[in-house]
Design a protein around this nucleic acid. Structure first.
Lengths: 157, 157
DNA sequence: CCCAGATAGCTGTATCTTACAGGTACTTAT
DNA sequence: ATAAGTACCTGTAAGATACAGCTATCTGGG
């Protein structure tokens, strides 16, 4: 470690360390925000938000498909979906093509609530990044997109 | 919304939406990884890792300082520190300058374990970002750093 | 010096999120 | 028609965290 800087021999090592640090930090911020925000923004559970975004994006799906996509156990999604149905955010209907399955669809109320949360979060980022130049915001968005893309196609965790 | 693109009137809105989406996605990746990794990498709890990094970085501290810094309740840190002491990762000594407080210091074993986890995570990022140009990695690191900086100084969550 | 209020840490308890195990109903393949 | 697999649900358990209440200690005004 700690080679001659001019060679750049372990510059990448250093950069990777920085990325590791910053991602870890970002995760902590996110979790803390989620918890601290608590009742206020919790018109919509974080889990519910993710599910609604998925349904809005990829169309009505059954529970197994959701669970796979969200990296969650089926039983977890069953419970989340039950709560969301109780709150009128989604409807659950028998799958006409598979008697075992249930198709989950967002309700208008659910989509509306999701959009509101999304707008609030976007506004929050607007505040947080208030001093940034537009091109820097763009660079950030692009770098995050590429990071997620890389994570999705990672070799083997 | 959806103004004439040539004016760039709501380009920022769109960019903020992208950032919101990508951060949310990154969080889900992180959580899924943490859970899936499970017993394997769990030579070191994620909480313990963060605490050790902090102690290594900022020196021995008492529990309240840690809790404040980590955005956690004092009782949570008390329990985490107890577990870490049981595992020989830290030591807890009475604060000579405040009879109420306890000073938490990392042990050599704790630092070593932390360094090992850090190295493993750095290697993981090396795999994930295998195809990236060094300057892109650098840009990512810098953007993440600036994002975290902005989060730290955010107006008011 | 002494007491009131603040602070540090610990313990008990509750909540939230999740996973795993087992059960039932249905589907698919042989 | 039967066996194996799948989809979902329910029971149970584990982990992380917050809040409330407790004790010991510190600090500042009389």
């Amino acid at each position: 470690m700690s080679e001659d800087p001019s060679t750049g021999a372990d510059t990448d090592e250093v950069t990777l360390g920085r990325i590791e640090t910053e991602v870890a930090l970002l995760m902590r911020f996110g979790e803390a925000t989620r918890r601290r925000t608590g009742a206020e923004h919790r018109v919509l559970d974080r889990a519910a938000y993710v599910i609604l975004r998925h349904l809005a994006d990829a169309g009505p799906q059954n529970i197994s498909a959701l669970a796979t996509r969200l990296n969650l156990d089926g039983s977890t999604v069953t419970r989340q979906v039950s709560a969301m149905q109780r709150d009128g955010l989604i409807v659950r209907e028998p799958d006409p093509r598979d008697g075992r399955g249930m198709v989950v669809s967002p309700t208008p109320a659910g989509l509306q609530r999701m959009a509101a949360v999304q707008a609030a979060r976007t506004r929050l980022y607007g505040d947080i990044l208030a001093g940034w130049a537009p091109e820097d915001r763009d660079t950030l968005a692009e770098m995050l997109r590429r990071l997620n893309e890389a994570l999705e196609h990672r070799p083997r965790p």
